[in-house]
Design a protein around this nucleic acid. Structure first.
Length: 649
RNA sequence: GCCGAUGUAGCUCAGCUGGUAGAGCACAGCUUUCGUAAAGCUGUGGUCGAGGGUUCGAAUCCCUCCAUCGGCUCCA
């Protein structure tokens, strides 16, 4: 007797082992048709797996569990793709085919390179397999037998995978009934009942990937695909990708004339006048809030003697990423971080406990020699400015200071409208300085602050900086890639190495603790994130051009000039479009440059000293007195509002 | 750095299996003086990423390098 408890707590009794499919059929034929898998006591299983003991079950359909369904479909689709590839290229050795955030991939080892030209053929084969609606059939072998079988097949990757499997049985899945020539793959499962349940799929891209992510291993071919429960969802997804592409900051950077890259300096951004306006507005705001929060600001040199980098530990731990120069018989390094320079400033005079915490900010320009293959627009560059700061404090002050930085960070992110922020705590890496005890103390201090703030975070063991553990702030861009922006790093080692001290209340020399922190992280990267966040349509306070005056015709150019001069006098960033074009063309151009406010002026406006305001991305216009427009726009800008509308109009 | 792809005018792209470069937009001039997402005509503009090779002849085929794109490893 097997008792099956359904999610609504109703109980069904079965005379013996029963499958999920049978249960579904009993409930309704419709459910049996929609069912993709079953969760038995919380464990996901095949619909055809026999349930032998009493259990709580839940039948998975795209309706009641879209996320799990999607993963099942995608994982199964990875098998279908693998089968298609093996049919087309019998030499292909399968490696590993998991699902990822927006689809799945399959790593294969095949000497013939697969190219995008091969995708249609693979997709056609996949379509055949899907149309045949073949069942996924599981069979299990005892560990030893399975290993023998895999050894006979000579696929070292699968042998490796099987070694990592838990338990004493190894499962395989065939597509279609198990018979000679049927496709099969080592796989933990579970799978959807049959290939026909894959609604829409597409092969997306191909890239190289190392086995187990190990650069010493053979480079495999990783084929990315995606799959959905139906074709409509796939189409929507592809549409979203197209939309996201339009937000690409590299594209918008050129379109909006914000910055450029040149062969003469790979990984080094050139900022144009318009880009610098955004940059400077960002910094103006940044300085405002930092000053309010008790920070002072310093600036240290870009090139410093190599000895300093030996002392700081960078030479031992970071030199692969550093640029070196030889000047007047001496060796210098271009700074990859600001901390050693900051330490010298700290040491330039004695300090009292009364000064602590001492919060010294530096908008430091750093250079890091990044591998050529990782460069990516402003997101990954070789020269960038960090909104760095070092907080020198006593051990007792750590917790409050960390909390202070977290608060400041969230405040700043909010101003920019960044809401998808997640935190990660990274602990001691293999390559590190300082004792394990110091690391433990520092890590505990960070955990303390996080739990005091009641913030959820992800733990990243072994991912800390070489001098201390860190809390990282991540935001997601429109392609749902996650980028690290802010970071808080606790450091007990640098103060030792630089013999930094303060005098405590009993006149003893003590060692300060150093907190490295950046909130926007790399200003360059942050700029890129903002461009994508806003799709280039900056809020008024950041917009390089806030207002554009559009005269109807040459006849009203004089009045347009008059308006323009008054805007300028009111410190609004404005341009005037006197081109010999119709108003439609001028509106279109202004929209292309994503100007927040367009002011149409013609004879009507001239008579009443008004402007007709058109707000970016809106179709209605409003006429209002020139002075009223100026006052309203200034208010929106002063408030750093994310929205362009004038309240009360 | 590694794997794969790409590189033609300022931008977006066309140029079949080798015969000596083309469109749209942008830009300039002229006409037009216009009321809310592109007026018309004319014109300027390219050692086809760089260097080497094959060939009577290379944007096109081969090699090397550089850069970019998508990933991997790494990272703010």
């Amino acid at each position: 007797m097997v008792q099956i408890t359904l999610p609504d707590n109703s109980v069904r009794e079965h005379g013996g082992p029963v499958t999920g499919l049978a249960i579904a059929q009993q409930i309704s034929p419709r459910l049996a048709k929609d069912a993709l898998a079953i969760r038995v006591n919380g464990v996901l299983r095949d619909l055809t797996a026999p349930i032998e003991t009493d259990a709580n079950i839940e039948i998975i359909t795209t309706k009641n569990d879209p996320q799990t369904s999607l993963e099942l479909i995608r994982h199964s689709c990875a098998h279908v793709m693998a089968e298609a590839i093996c049919q087309l290229y019998p030499d292909a050795k399968l490696v590993y085919g998991p699902t990822v955030e927006n689809g799945f991939y399959y790593d294969i080892d095949l000497d013939r390179p697969i190219s995008t030209d091969d995708f249609p053929a693979i997709e056609a084969k996949m379509a055949e397999i899907v149309a045949a609606d073949k069942p996924f059939v599981r069979y299990e072998l005892p560990l030893e037998e399975a290993m023998a079988k895999l050894r006979a097949e000579g696929n070292r990757y699968k042998i490796e995978n099987a070694k990592h499997a838990k338990g004493d049985k190894i499962s395989f899945y065939t597509t279609g009934q198990r018979e000679a020539g049927s496709f099969e793959d080592l796989c933990l499962g579970p799978h959807i009942p049959s290939t026909g349940k894959i609604g829409g799929f597409k092969i997306m891209s191909i890239a190289g990937a190392y086995f187990h992510g190990d650069a010493r291993e053979k480079m495999l071919q990783r084929i990315y695909g995606t799959a959905f429960a139906d074709k409509k969802e796939l189409a929507q997804y592809l549409e979203r990708l197209e939309e996201a592409k339009k937000r690409d900051h590299r594209l918008l950077g050129r379109q909006l004339d914000l910055f450029s890259f040149h062969d003469e300096g790979p990984g080094f951004a050139f900022y144009h006048p318009k880009g610098m306006v955004v940059w400077n507005e960002m910094l103006k705001y940044w300085r405002e809030v930092h000053e309010k929060d008790g920070y002072c600001e310093i600036s240290t040199p870009i090139i410093l003697n190599e000895k300093l980098w030996h002392q700081s530990g960078h030479w031992d731990n970071y030199k692969e990423n550093m640029y070196f120069v030889h000047i007047d018989e001496s060796d210098y390094a271009v700074k990859p971080m600001n901390c050693p320079g900051g330490c010298l400033v700290y040491k330039s005079r004695p300090h009292s406990y009364r000064e602590l915490p001492l919060k010294m900010a530096e908008l430091g320009l750093v250079h890091r020699h990044e591998a050529s293959g990782v460069l990516h627009g402003l997101f990954r560059v070789r020269r960038f400015t960090q909104d760095d700061a070092h907080i020198y404090c006593t051990p007792e002050q750590i917790r409050d200071e960390i909390i202070g930085v977290i608060n400041l960070a969230f405040d700043i992110y909010k101003t920019f409208g960044l809401t998808e922020v997640s935190l990660e705590l990274s602990t001691m890496p293999e390559k590190h300085i300082g004792s394990v005890e110091i690391w433990d103390r520092a890590t505990d201090a960070l955990k303390d602050a996080l739990s005091a703030k009641k913030i959820d975070y992800v733990l990243n063991p072994g991912d800390g900086a070489f001098y201390g553990p860190k809390i990282d702030f991540h935001v997601r861009d429109c392609l749902s890639r996650s980028w690290q922006i802010g970071t808080i790093q606790l450091d007990f080692s640098m103060p030792e190495r630089f013999d930094m001290t303060y005098v405590d209340r009993s006149n003893r020399e003590e060692r300060p603790v150093m907190i490295h922190r950046a909130i926007l992280g790399s200003l360059d990267r942050f700029f890129g994130i903002l461009i994508e966040q806003y799709a280039g349509a900056f809020p008024a306070w950041l917009a390089p051009e806030q207002v554009r005056v559009l005269p109807i015709s040459e006849k009203t150019n004089n009045f347009a000039d008059n308006v323009y001069n008054r805007l300028k006098a009111a410190n609004l960033r404005c341009e005037i479009d006197k081109a010999d074009d119709k108003i439609n063309a001028k509106i279109k151009r202004a929209h292309e440059m994503k100007v927040p406010y367009m002011l149409v002026v013609g004879p009507k406006e001239m008579e009443t000293d008004t402007v007709t305001v058109r707000i970016r991305n809106q179709n209605e216009q409003k006429s209002l007195p020139v002075n009223d427009f100026i006052a309203s726009a200034r208010k929106v800008i002063a408030q750093r509002s994310l929205c362009l509308e004038f309240s009360g109009l």
